[in-house]
Design a protein around this nucleic acid. Sequence first.
RNA 1: GCGAGUGUAGCUCAGCUGGCAGAGCACCUGACUGUGGAUCAGGUUGCCGCGGGUUCAAGUCCCGUCACUCGCCCCA
Length: 422
Amino acid sequence: MTVIRSIRGTRDFYPPEMARRSWLYENIRKVSESFGYQEYEGPFLEYVELYAAKSGDELVKEQSYVFEDRSGELIALRPELTPTLVRMIGQRQRQLNFPLRWWSFGPFWRYERPQKGRTREFFQWNIDLVGVDTPESDAELVAVAATFFRQVGLKPQEIILKVNNRRLMESELGKLGLAAGQRDQAFRLIDRRDKTSPEKWRADAKGLGLSEGQVRKLEGLLGDQNLWESSEELVRFFKAVEALNVQEYVQYAPEVIRGLDYYTGTVFEAHDSSGEFRAILGGGRYDDLMAAVGGEALPGVGFAMGDVVISLVLERYGCLPNVDELTASDILVTVFDEASWLESYKLAAELRGSGFRVVCYPQPVKLPKQFKYADRISARVALVLGPEELREGKVTVKNLLTREQQTIPRAALVEVIRGCLE
RNA sequence: GCGAGUGUAGCUCAGCUGGCAGAGCACCUGACUGUGGAUCAGGUUGCCGCGGGUUCAAGUCCCGUCACUCGCCCCA
């Protein structure tokens, strides 16, 4: 119907969707700030090289929007924030106060096939703690995530934060007799475990050169819920998680490994318990990233959460707020006729001065139409200022929820309206 | 990049082995010239995604194409 379509993988945010997005942002902001994190933002455009520095990343080559600007430079629409974060820290490493606690919520672009929970343009919460390498700081980030879930009303039986540690897995793989060169591939294999059938998974494992015995041991490893006890880091991590009082959301999961190469220690991701959605968020410790980009060595831990999956999950568990409540006005001032038109405007202006959200109907059309409009914008109160009211210095106040109506002196108006809004 | 499904009114969809293009919701008008959500009566709305083919006849069958959705890959 429309001549020009919207671009694939983008979303239009009509007021109801925009209200939910703002609500999500508000919750993210509250939680981030409650842990003392500071908001920051980077550019949406970066040189392609910034991402290329993150060695061999498919993200850049196949999933980024890259274009040549008018001077011939190769520019990318940012597909993620971490390289920007690393650059920003590197530029001011000596002036910044470590440990650094930063968070951000902004748009990102990835040229992917859109599907459920996946769009080409999306918003992402990024939050990082840079400058310390303790398991306790890993636990803090996991606690931030858990606190967010608690804040938006997602319960521990609905959401689980799965945690593992790459160093632990590396040493365990070493015990299996895997060469260091095989580990990256083995990690990918582990990551794919619950996405492929056991038979195909075993076949893939053997394709990597694992013996029958090694495959069986690996399967045993991935079924061992107590494996974390042999990692000093994870033992400390889980103690800290308890101290932070979020243990009900957190679980050890030997199969969690994360796709990104730069994670070095603890890794984690959040899933909903129904299993019908993709990972809600993912993150972990990256101790070598700063050095890799040319700064001084700095350890860090952080995670990213896209807005798309979390929105689906929030909807699934009935956690989204009522849109009407988010976008409603308090008062509709009706316009009775041409003669009193501007009297209504004056009244609306006064009430705005008293702090109400006030809509004044912009034309003297029939009252039923104006009342219907009041309904549709979810106004709680409608005011009528007709010839009778004007003659007597009064206003008619109708409580649209209770349908009660009274004509009162102007002096009492603000108080009566407050009563209606309670 | 690979695979599957779906395109019909503003929205959600029905439309059988080809035979006058439909329903619900929404919208408009009125019942109700100073009062909204309910009810009732009436009314508007279509390149049936696009192009071609078969047929007396195509929303329906065939071919192509575009778009969307869902998987795979990858990841937030």
